[in-house]
Amino acid sequence: MTAVFKREFLSYFRSPVGYVALALFSFLSGFQFINMISKGYISISSEIVSLSSFFIIIVPIITMGLLSEDKRRGTEILFYTTPVNLFDVVFGKFLAAFALFAIMFVNVIIHMIITLCCKGKVDAGVVGATLVFFFVAALYISIGLFASSITDSQIVSAIISFVILLVISLLTTISQFAQSGVASFLGATFCKFDPAKAQSAGEKVAAALRWFNPLDKTQDFRYGIFSVFPLVFCLSFALVFIYLTFRKLDKKRWSQK
């Protein structure tokens, strides 16, 4: 695991990709920070939260090549023909991308120090937003990693993970569409004489969809409200995607194709 982690992590810094991602992130975070401080207040937690909204772009860029490049260049053969555990390979790659996020976060830590020097407030909300930052990053990276495992093209992988992340971030809107859609469909067909039933079915569908929205669940963290469930949610689904990726790689052992 450390072998793969080391290689992938360093490979971000062997090519310009890692530096560009870091530069982009520090520019964006710096922009947020300066924007606030020039108005005389600094809310680090809202800076972190708005930075998380760039995940949808940053995560696909960081994860797109993780497994697809190995497949395209044939280097994946190393993982199959050496006595290394495939799960370690997947997890090492996941950790590498995650570590890059941790490095990016150093920017925010610098901002925190500046805030403290200016007698601003770094409160429980900042800790909460930081937790959300890393847990959501873990979930998104695992999704990006999975997208990278199902194709041998970086571009396709980036598009797939971008679309999945987009759907997740629009889940609230989608759930509203689903609600009215289901309600009107049932209202017109099965529950013709019971519009309330159709309505409630629509609401249930919307609620079920919303349940999968990690952003919705974690939005209170920035105020300093910690709840265990959203973290469990992000972590467990991150593990599910890592496991799926592992199974995708492991498929070669039995696949007849």
Partner: peptide, 30 residues
């Protein structure tokens, strides 16, 4: 919740310095 900062420390000069460092120098250096 009060996120205001000490106005003595956050002067226009220091904001300009921070803008230059955080948004220009650090990204370009990277």
């Amino acid at each position: 919740s009060n996120f205001s900062v000490d106005n003595q420390k956050v002067t226009a000069t220091s904001v300009n310095v921070m803008t230059a460092v955080l948004m220009v120098i650090v990204p370009i250096a990277l």
